[in-house]
């Protein structure tokens, strides 16, 4: 299991304005969602974690080693990131080749890469489409190809950037299942998202960013109970929780199951 320590992290693109203004936290075994308004620093943080950007001050330690001391290629073996727009990465004529690209790049043996790719395609529900051209698929399926292409790399840490965009009910359910599976395999799963219901259903821990700072970090339910934090970050409660709030419940729940059993009790 990977340990990621964020220590006094600062980053700025230009001298005038810092985008990340000093963050300290540790990412542990829990599946973690990072939420916040656009411009809060979420994507910049992801790029720092991926080594695509280097901190201007402070550091990120991955299993004790600073990302500053690792090349992007070295980090690629440990941290996988699914980008928001699959069109930014897909270039092979066949789904399977696209999914194989990452594993082969990081030096996985051919047979092993092939096995991982097949498992990854099964996890995202695209088995049978191996020889299809990814650009013949709709955007939602193409996004799942991108997810599979990262899963196949079998990295310790997996980072998702807005995975639920353009997904329908079935796609979202599939993503939630993937997050749970990865978590059970002992992987570190982190997502950046605007989808509060997705966070409520699939992530144990939630970190809130606002204006380049971390303003909350707790288990998901506790974070969504902090009204002032949500207001400051311009976020909403997940829908089930809104109902609890409306009903004036003293305690709150995140899922439909919990809600129903609370009533039936």
């Amino acid at each position: 299991m990977a340990v990621i320590e964020i220590k006094d992290l600062h980053f700025s693109y230009t001298a005038e304005e810092e985008v990340i203004k000093g963050m300290n936290f540790t990412i542990d075994a829990r599946s973690t969602a990072i939420i916040g308004q656009n411009g809060a620093g979420k994507t910049t943080f992801a790029k720092l974690l991926k080594g695509l950007l280097k901190p201007t001050k402070g550091e990120i330690l991955l299993n004790g080693t600073s990302t500053k001391d690792m090349t992007v290629a070295m980090l690629a073996k440990q941290v996988g990131m699914v980008f928001q727009n699959p069109n930014d990465q897909i270039f092979k004529y066949q789904v399977l080749d696209e999914v194989l690209f990452g594993p082969l790049q990081i030096g996985m043996a051919k047979e092993n890469a092939r096995r991982k790719a097949e498992q990854a395609l099964e996890a995202v529900g695209l088995t049978g489409l191996e020889t299809t051209n990814p650009y013949d698929l709709g955007l939602s399926a193409r996004k799942l190809v991108a997810v599979a292409s990262i899963l196949a790399m079998d990295t310790e840490v997996i980072l998702f950037d807005e995975p639920t965009i353009a997904q329908d009910y079935a796609g979202k359910e599939r993503l939630k299942e993937i997050v749970r599976q990865l978590r059970n395999q002992g992987k570190t799963v982190i997502t950046i998202t605007h989808d509060m219901n997705f966070v409520a259903d699939a992530f144990e821990r939630t970190i809130v960013f606002a204006g380049g700072k971390m303003i909350a970090d707790d288990d998901t339910k506790s974070v969504f109970l902090q009204k002032d934090v949500l207001e400051k970050a311009y976020l909403e409660q997940p829908d089930v929780m809104k109902l609890c709030t409306e009903l004036g419940w003293r305690e709150s729940v995140l899922s439909i199951d919990e809600f129903v059993s609370a009533i039936q009790k």
Binding site: E246, L247, G248, E251, A262, I263
Partner: peptide, 19 residues
């Protein structure tokens, strides 16, 4: 909607359940 759910639940007596 949230409003409708609130209405039916309050009618049913869905106030704070005993925790």
């Amino acid at each position: 909607t949230l409003e409708e759910a609130k209405t039916v639940l309050l009618r049913k007596g869905g106030n704070d359940p005993v925790w």
